[in-house]
Design a protein around this nucleic acid. Sequence first.
DNA 1: TTTTATTATCGTAAATTTACGATAATAGTT
DNA 2: AACTATTATCGTAAATTTACGATAATAAAA
Lengths: 110, 110
Amino acid sequence: MGLSKTEQFTEEDILIARFAKALGHPARIAILRVLIQRKACICGDIVDELPLSQSTVSQHLKELKEAGLIQGDIDGKKVCYCINEQVWRQAQETLGVLFQRYTSCDSRCC
Amino acid sequence: MGLSKTEQFTEEDILIARFAKALGHPARIAILRVLIQRKACICGDIVDELPLSQSTVSQHLKELKEAGLIQGDIDGKKVCYCINEQVWRQAQETLGVLFQRYTSCDSRCC
DNA sequence: TTTTATTATCGTAAATTTACGATAATAGTT
DNA sequence: AACTATTATCGTAAATTTACGATAATAAAA
């Protein structure tokens, strides 16, 4: 059907999946990389860095914003995006915990 | 169009996105959680733990397998899934590096 | 105020995802 | 050999995603 039965799962799992889903496209990783590299936030010249049209980049920015990972502040004619530090740390934490929860049983299966 | 222009992005970014995408659904997080909790691998009674049909769970398992995060070994009538330790660590590493690359500039934007 | 630049949104098309039931495929069991 | 249990796959439907061009919306500049 296309959308998940989100009600049936843990809040935690839904949150992790939401963060992961936002990271689930190369363009969005590339966008985040640009935002991280410049340390300060930059505006829509992210578009110039990506091999995608302006509208498509805008859509990706929207998804990252909806996941909370970035924020955009209007600065005159332009819009300034940057990592949302707090949410970023939350994503780092929740995903990190998931990964660490697997403490090497012997790699053989069964 | 539905699919990404994967050619245009970094191998690294594509890899990260692939891992993240696989983690981008609560059901798949739940599956991984089951596999982690039991430490050893278990079979399709994952189905009993999830609020989804057998075929749907099978589909999610397939996606996790295609991302390399899990592996499934046939054991007679049943199939035994478990975390693929090596790939798991790789995902942990690549995602971890991305997250750590952001070292708190002052949270204010612009 | 008209123009220009920047960004978001709308409309659209094609591919993918999610979900399920039904059915195959496989391997033990009887 | 027939049956049963387990899992994968097929077929299908609906929602979502990805992508783009075209157009709005906004604000600075001329």
